[in-house]
């Protein structure tokens, strides 16, 4: 029956498929949507780079057939910052998990958002540390169980869109792995956005999150998203908190214009130095 090629073949390292993600994990779906967004935009693949940190989602870099960098835990954003500044003509996408981006890498996230660094950050949020076997994450909802919160979580979790928006991100959206069309469209918009864009993708982790919390499989979580997500484009992200198995508000929350880090750098230095200012890589900003 395999007479033709999978349409994603040019975008993925098919020599590395099957990937390491468990059955009913949602990360593969997020990757699929991202690949579709790249296709939709007809972005030349040599001008895209993916930077990931550590964890299940950290492995995304290894499966996309673009320049891809699998860095250390939490450090994808500063690595991507350096890469973007050195190759301003490229689209640099950080693809990583909630623990990586918001626990160990939280400081880098808020500062990249503050600077309005020209990056797209995609966070697959599965509410848990998957790779290490299901420990408490900064996104684990109150009362959810993990191997390090065996009696139920009593820490307040992050509301990621609210965090991103309040730190200055110019584009903030949240979807689940079920919202494939909307997620793909959001990824397209984010790729074309100047400055810091952020997309949270809520995705099922069947092996350690669903199982420990007796929520069935990843498929059951997808059905839960189907029944319990409320699309509220333009909603105040402050109201998008996520409780344990509660309603999930999804949508595009922020889409605004603001000079990016690179814009501001050129303008500021040109103003101060005049003709003495030599922009990196020449006047076109590209090297």
């Amino acid at each position: 029956m395999i007479t033709k090629e999978h349409p994603m073949t040019p975008l993925l390292r098919m020599d590395r498929i099957p990937h390491i993600w468990c059955p009913t994990c949602g990360i593969g779906t997020a990757v699929s949507c991202f690949a579709a967004a790249l296709k939709q935009n007809e972005i030349p693949l040599e001008k895209v780079a993916i930077v990931s940190g550590i964890g299940c989602t950290g492995r995304v870099a290894g499966y996309m057939k673009v320049d891809s960098f699998h860095t250390t835990h939490g450090r994808a954003i500063p690595f991507a910052t350096g890469l973007k500044l050195a190759r301003p003509e490229m689209k640099i996408v950080v693809f990583s998990g909630d623990g990586d981006l918001f626990a160990i890498g939280g400081n880098h996230f808020i500062h990249a958002a503050r600077r309005n660094m020209d990056l797209t950050v995609i966070c697959v949020n599965n509410f848990i540390y998957g790779m290490t076997g299901g420990q408490l994450a900064p996104t684990t909802p109150l009362s959810a169980k993990s191997t390090t919160s065996p009696y139920g979580n009593y820490e307040h979790p992050f509301n990621l869109p609210h965090l991103a928006a309040s730190c200055g991100a110019t584009y903030v959206a949240r979807w689940t792995a079920l919202h494939i069309r909307r997620l793909t469209n959001s990824m397209s918009e984010a790729l074309n956005k100047k400055g810091f864009s952020f997309i949270e993708v809520i995705a099922p982790c069947s092996t350690v999150y669903a199982r420990r919390n007796r929520l069935g499989s990843g498929l059951d979580l997808m059905k839960f998203y189907h029944d319990n997500c409320e699309i509220k484009n333009g909603a105040n992200p402050e109201e998008a908190d996520i409780g344990f198995q509660s309603k999930i508000i999804v949508g595009k929350f922020v889409d605004k214009e603001k000079p990016s880090f690179i814009d501001n750098m050129h303008v500021g230095l040109k103003r101060a130095l005049g003709d003495k200012y030599i922009p990196y890589g020449g006047d076109d900003g590209a090297k």
Partner: peptide
């Protein structure tokens, strides 16, 4: 800025080190 390069003050030294690794892959001496 007068020699055609980039300076960025990062949020900490972990970020600084990563930024120079990323930039080095971008083809610049860091």
């Amino acid at each position: 800025p007068e020699v055609g390069g980039i300076f960025i003050q990062m949020e900490d030294e972990m970020a600084s080190m990563n930024a120079i690794l990323g930039a080095s892959w971008g083809g610049v001496k860091t």
